[in-house]
Amino acid sequence: MACPAKFSYNQIYFKSTVMTTVWIFFLILHLVSIGFAGLTIWRLYYYIRRYRFSETKYTLLFGFVHLHWIAISYVALAFTWVVSSFLIMTFL
């Protein structure tokens, strides 16, 4: 008996395949993203712990921005971006 559904089997299969591929790409993207952020932070702290400088307000960015603050915000924003992009992909 012919299927009375709106979409044919091929269309449904195509849609599900594309969506699965999109989500796989999304997953790989954020795994790479989080991994890269972790590697970056590791390399940064490896260097700055080995070679230390006594910072002053004349050597900091704008006179007050510490490197640790930027590193913390980088990690926090990397995870926030994963969640927010997931929400964008899900609820748009």
């Binding site: 969506m19 999109v22 999304f26 992909m89």
Partner: peptide, 11 residues
């Protein structure tokens, strides 16, 4: 589908 593919590209 096209919309999500574009969204993924932008992301």
């Amino acid at each position: 589908i096209a919309y999500r593919v574009v969204a993924l590209g932008v992301i």
